[in-house]
């Protein structure tokens, strides 16, 4: 099968030509990884669901599971960008111009979530005018039947 030619003079070299067998193997492997990670995330989602059924569940453990799910999502993002979008095959300079600016997100997420938390604390202490008391955890009723009042 003929391969498309390099028609852009500014492009110095084309990525090494991969033959179909190698390509197919790579795509199948990535698809399996993405699917398996999604299934693990769903399983952990159900673990949280069943833990919530008990009114006095372990908050720290739920937070830990949510952290694990977040890290798994970042792994999925890595595979999509690196393999499906071929960023992993580009030259290092190109990779860096995308990845380095995205590091701003670490500040962005930390700053705003801390701000949200401080806002909650102000709410519960009426602007630091009284001592903080952890509010009573209000309970949402068991899943109502969808469209139940029709």
């Amino acid at each position: 099968m003929e391969h498309q030619e390099n028609i852009f003079p500014e492009v110095t070299f084309q990525p090494a030509h991969v033959d179909n067998a190698v390509f197919t193997k790579k795509v199948i492997r990535t698809t399996v990884i993405l699917s398996v990670i999604t299934l693990i995330e769903l399983a952990l989602g159900f673990v949280i669901y069943f833990m919530h059924k008990n009114a006095e569940y372990n908050h720290a453990l739920v937070l830990f599971i949510k952290g694990v799910i977040t890290i798994l999502s970042l792994a999925k993002a890595f595979y999509i960008v690196s393999i499906f979008m071929h960023l992993g095959d580009e030259i290092r300079n190109m990779i860096m111009t995308i990845v380095v600016p995205l590091l701003l997100f670490t500040w962005f997420i930390a700053a705003f979530l801390i701000d949200g938390n401080s806002w909650r604390s102000l709410r519960n202490t009426e602007g630091h005018s009284k001592t903080y008391v952890e509010p009573v955890q209000e309970v949402q009723p068991e899943a109502k039947k969808p469209g139940s009042v029709e």
């Binding site: 989602g45 705003f112 979530l113 938390n117 806002w119 909650r120 949402q140």
Partner: peptide, 23 residues
């Protein structure tokens, strides 16, 4: 998404997605 996170962190109560999206 971060703005959503900020508002969610500022609340004492937030709906449980497992109870909202169950159909």
């Amino acid at each position: 998404l971060i703005s959503y996170g900020t508002i969610r962190f500022s609340q004492n109560y937030w709906p449980d997605p497992n109870k909202v999206f169950n159909a």
